[in-house]
């Protein structure tokens, strides 16, 4: 994973709540066995509508997605994160995320920015009013700011996830440093637990 310290750029306002991962990437797209090329399927069913916010010229090139509450609920498909990244997003802002989705984001370096509902609403309105609004998300400090609109907020990240993002650490590599502990656990584990080969 590449390190992410600061994301700054323009944003797209997605004024919807309860955007589930079936909406982010419909199941037709899940048949692929690759990890790339999912950007074309991002919000596929909504993108047919010419007025859908992602199709609007003034938002082209934005790197931050600002959405309503409960973003990324439902299916565990990491394809949703791959699609957002592949499309060009580096951070997603919402007052509440689906747990699995938020977790998947941090594994791939897409920053899940969980803001207070008031900050979320203010950002949605500000970005809708001014598509050129510059937003800065500082992962190390856990802050999100849009000075031109007078918006400043913070977002939570546990320290471990924060350092993983900032340093771009690979989770598996980190865990394998504790291989002795895994082996110790395994040798003490009840022998009657089920095994597929039995």
């Amino acid at each position: 994973m590449r390190p992410v310290t600061v994301v700054s750029g323009r944003a797209i306002p997605l004024e919807r709540s309860d955007v589930d991962t079936d909406q982010i990437i419909p199941s037709d797209w899940l048949k692929r066995v690759e990890r790339t090329g999912f950007g074309a399927g991002l919000f596929a069913e909504w993108r047919d509508d010419r007025d859908f916010v992602l199709n609007r010229e003034e938002y082209a090139g934005a790197t931050i997605l600002v959405a309503g509450p409960n973003f990324g609920t439902g299916s565990s498909r990491e394809h949703a994160v791959w699609a957002l990244l592949d499309y060009g997003f580096e951070a997603v802002v919402s007052p509440r995320f689906g747990d699995i989705f938020a977790n998947n984001c941090t594994k791939q370096g897409l920053v899940p920015v969980r803001v207070d509902p008031e900050v979320g609403r203010a950002l949605l309105e500000a970005v809708a009013a001014d598509p050129g609004l510059e937003i800065t998300i500082d992962v190390g400090r856990g802050t999100i700011e849009a000075p031109a609109a007078g918006i400043a907020g913070t977002f939570p990240l546990d320290e471990f996830t924060r350092s993983r993002l900032v340093h771009g650490w690979d989770d598996i590599g980190l865990t394998l440093r504790h291989e002795d502990r895994i082996a110790a656990y395994e040798s003490a584990r009840p022998s009657w637990r089920p095994s597929a080969s039995a």
Binding site: S76, R77, E78, H79, N103, K107, D171, L174, T175, L176
Partner: peptide
């Protein structure tokens, strides 16, 4: 509980999962 594909890879490789 359900996990994403990066975590699937993690469990395949280590039979463990870091979880808050």
């Amino acid at each position: 509980f359900g996990i994403g594909t990066s975590e699937v890879e993690h469990v395949l490789a280590t039979q463990t999962l870091p979880q808050i």
